[in-house]
Write a protein that binds this DNA or RNA. Sequence first.
DNA 1: CTAAATGCAAAGCATTTGCCTTGAC
DNA 2: GTCAAGGCAAATGCTTTGCATTTAG
Lengths: 136, 136
Amino acid sequence: MTLPTILDRCETQGLRLTGPRRVIAQVLEDASDHPDVETIHARAAEQDPSISVATVYRTVKLFEESGILERREFGDGRARYEDAEREHHDHLIDLQTGEVIEFVDPEIEALQEKIAERLGYDLKGHRLELFAVRRK
Amino acid sequence: MTLPTILDRCETQGLRLTGPRRVIAQVLEDASDHPDVETIHARAAEQDPSISVATVYRTVKLFEESGILERREFGDGRARYEDAEREHHDHLIDLQTGEVIEFVDPEIEALQEKIAERLGYDLKGHRLELFAVRRK
DNA sequence: CTAAATGCAAAGCATTTGCCTTGAC
DNA sequence: GTCAAGGCAAATGCTTTGCATTTAG
């Protein structure tokens, strides 16, 4: 069973499948990194130079609100996006180099419930995001 | 043994103790939350209305570069600051309400080294920051 | 056809910076 | 007295938005 593509999920959500949206969806489908809007726009523009940055902003916001993408803030002032349906993982971010390392740690996963419980905090539908920040 | 105040550390660092810096240092000393620049400025202005926002920005940046403060990005677009000398803790952030819960989990602390090792990533001088994000 | 989506440019915010004045040491 | 620090306003960088035009369904 293959996971549904971003485009599939756009259809499921009943989103209008415009030219720009198809291109942006494909760009994100192909991305193995965590592109920011400028990067997404650059890649989309390779397919269709008429796509504007404003549309990229509007589209990633729409996709995020539809649960298709997840927005990440890595501390460098711009938002980055990645497919929300990818298997869960955490991030190690080096603020000096901008390097982002993905990882999954079973013990950390197991700690999520425990921590929430200890704090009396309802984690339902939430996620723990782990950051290792190399400060200056 | 009492911990050195922010002002103490400014002196240790050889920073010039100007009026605005004294006030901003005291504001941060008194803060039990994670104030952003606007908030810090509002509190500082109560003591001295002539302090400008630009100075608050310059001062928190200086303090951060001096290791006196730590900058936090909680995903709402503005930076927040807290005393770097406070005992280590992580944060649970609810992006919907802006609520920030501090906590320390010994198991998570113990996992830091392990994770870094597993990734071949040098954590020296770094820190794991934990976020639980309630998305929309 | 009709409402939603796009492009473009202007507007918004948070933050930074240039420049001249003020003040700490 | 000197050079760093501060105030003010302009500039910057990322993101959003108003409006006229295009387009998916």
